[in-house]
Design a protein around this nucleic acid. Sequence first.
DNA 1: GCTTGTGAAATCCTTCACAGCC
DNA 2: GGCTGTGAAGGATTTCACAAGC
Lengths: 178, 178
Amino acid sequence: MVALNLVSRPNKRRQTPDQVSELTTNRLSIYLRSLNELDASGVQTVSSQGLAEQFHLNAAQIRKDLAYFGEFGVRGVGYYVKELRRHLRQILGLDRRLRVAILGAGNLGLALADYPGFRQEGFEIAALFDNLREKVGQQSRLGVPIFDIHDPSSIRSLPPASRGFSTSRRARCTCRMM
Amino acid sequence: MVALNLVSRPNKRRQTPDQVSELTTNRLSIYLRSLNELDASGVQTVSSQGLAEQFHLNAAQIRKDLAYFGEFGVRGVGYYVKELRRHLRQILGLDRRLRVAILGAGNLGLALADYPGFRQEGFEIAALFDNLREKVGQQSRLGVPIFDIHDPSSIRSLPPASRGFSTSRRARCTCRMM
DNA sequence: GCTTGTGAAATCCTTCACAGCC
DNA sequence: GGCTGTGAAGGATTTCACAAGC
């Protein structure tokens, strides 16, 4: 059993609005993936049309999604990839390290804990939880410690800088990889 | 990098409708998870209200979602858990074995390939793909074979019964676990 | 009594179309 | 010329409210 919170919703009330639709924020994380690639390929600017074609979306929708958080584009030019990427990471809350815990330290939990792709995106897998006594106290190959799922307070033994989880209400994982 | 297709959308045109909203089908798989648990606990019937409270949803919405595919409920009683579960599994296409491939045979891919939870839900992980020469030809601990990602035709060596994948267009994974 | 199924109303989301700007 | 930002129109989804049925 695995719990992860990868698609971090924006903080309520960041720079703008009352309520951002979840559909919008889901798309933002899609745009961000594309911007990461464009940036890595050295592309400087991209138009809403360009993004739209990639994802079979409507260009106006993309502009609306983005305009919702500010005026990031330049008329006649499009969006500067680096700049938009920075903005999206901030809007999605990916500009700070996000500490995450994984429930279940079986093969899957251990593999997820050490998966480099998460770290790369700014997620810090800070702890594993399991209900098997013999696992508690152990750690993953890369050193993620395993705690007793029935004794959440045991996490106190973590150094304070690593505490403070954003726990998702349900043990449910909604992740997009690459 | 991992590609999985867990939330199987219903076949276009099963028993009813022109177009089922993806929002609806996503919720169906949420209901199904709950029904699995209720069934396992021996609960016989559940009302739309009962389901709604669990997920912070509107009871009318749940009734609409379900009524879209037929009249599964009984007025004054609710829904029979076993029966509704069977219907949902059929609607979501989980009543037949679904063959799935995973791209990437790293730690994560290998752990996913052997994760028992998938099999349990009727998914058969039939193949792994990787681009590392030394991995091709190997297999996971439980015997899922690894193929060359650059040579998809190599999958021909699988016994015919295991062929025929539903490939997702993008290497993207949207899975909910438990 | 309680609960479903469902039109109608309300709300939310997407698309169009164009003014405004580079 | 090309592209963004955005009001308005159009669609879709959700919620309300209640008739119908057990």
